[in-house]
Design a protein around this nucleic acid. Structure first.
Lengths: 207, 207
DNA sequence: GATTGAGGTAATCGGATGATTACAAGGGGA
DNA sequence: TCCCCTTGTAATCATCCGATTACCTCAATC
């Protein structure tokens, strides 16, 4: 039989590397559609593999989401810690601004902040809700104890982060092109210097 | 045949009234589980009727969610307008605080703020995303034009509203009973005077 | 060259779920 | 009385989706 009749052999990749590919793909898919709205087949297609492989590697869809959540939290905490190490002994105001920039930088991988946000809305799910609460508190403690922000500053910081996530999740920047005055003002005042970064990341993400 | 063998006739209620019952039930169910995670059967059971009746009255699950979203937006805008009418000619600070209280009061019906928040995360859905963006801008315009807040104050207000929604959605107040120091501080600083209101509403909602 | 374990898929199953259909019962008007 | 509109349900359908099973195929090792 001629070789052309046989389908090309699938690319074989070490499990650890494949795992990270799947997690990255799952972050995007879960971030866009939410936990319940996303399917393991969408994740598989985004990662370029078959659906059963996704399920087998992570055991279950819920488990996959939990690992996506842990990965997102880890990236977020890492980004903050790098920022803290970079500029020690700053005053609270500049530190807050630089943390905000580090946070906004995470948007270059849209999946991270969006799947985090999706997890936050799943408080009713026993496993996911517990992990989400624990993660939020971990972030809070980092800002309070390691960064040394006051309770008020920390809450302010978190609040603007949640608005940031929400505006990105609802694809509000898409309205910018429609020239809506309120949308323009809201986005400019929310994102400030990070507006260009966000716009770039979102138009790239649309493909 | 004895009457006891026949099932009791279902209660007949005017369509308009039944409609509101379903919308109220759907708000709670969608708020807890999200759009994709909720089922029309859960809504039906919460409203005390059969699943086909839910679908037939609203045409489709998506349509039901869109009406839940409009209802939530309407309640929110109404609450703000009542607050504005109540205390005209206040300074910006007190007005902002009173609007915040009006917002927090909506938590007595948990479904409103949570289904709103769920809609915000569905920016990728064509119909729901468009309605969510339009709703957010309507709120923004009310705060800017009717309430007369500055752009900065409005964004601050929205940011703390999003944090409020997020903490409620993730059931963070449940952690209060575990005595976690970070959770206590975060909640006290986020909710302030509204903490008792929120705790009351959430323990009542748990049933 | 045989063996074996790791990386991967095709086929399929079973349950869940949104939607449709057909039907029932009550009640008000002609 | 008869009709028919409104309010409602039971039964069922078609589809989707997560999970399982069985199998394939390299590459390294002996």
């Amino acid at each position: 039989m001629p070789a052309s009749e046989r389908p090309p052999a699938p690319e074989r990749i070490p499990a650890a590397e494949r795992r990270e590919q799947i997690l990255a793909a799952a972050s995007r898919v879960f971030g866009e559609h939410g936990y319940a709205g996303a399917t393991t087949d969408q994740v598989a297609q985004a990662a370029g593999i078959s659906q059963p492989y996704v399920v087998r590697m992570f055991g279950s869809k819920e488990n996959l989401f939990l690992e996506v959540l842990q990965r997102a939290l880890h990236r977020l905490l890492d980004a903050f810690r790098v920022t803290l190490a970079d500029g020690a002994d700053e005053d609270a105001a500049t530190l807050g601004q630089r943390l905000g920039e580090a946070y906004a930088d995470l948007i270059t991988d849209r999946g991270i902040l969006l799947s985090l946000m999706q997890a936050f809305l799943l408080g009713n799910d026993p496993a996911i809700g517990a992990a989400a609460r624990s993660g939020m508190l971990e972030v809070y403690r980092l800002l309070r104890e390691e960064a040394g922000l006051s309770a008020e500053s920390t809450v302010d910081f978190l609040a603007h982060g949640m608005l940031f996530n929400t505006l990105v999740a609802m694809r509000m920047p898409d309205d910018l092109e429609r020239g809506d005055a309120a949308a323009t003002e809201l986005l400019q005042c929310s994102f400030r210097s990070k507006l260009d970064l966000v716009l770039g990341a979102m138009s790239r993400g649309a493909e």
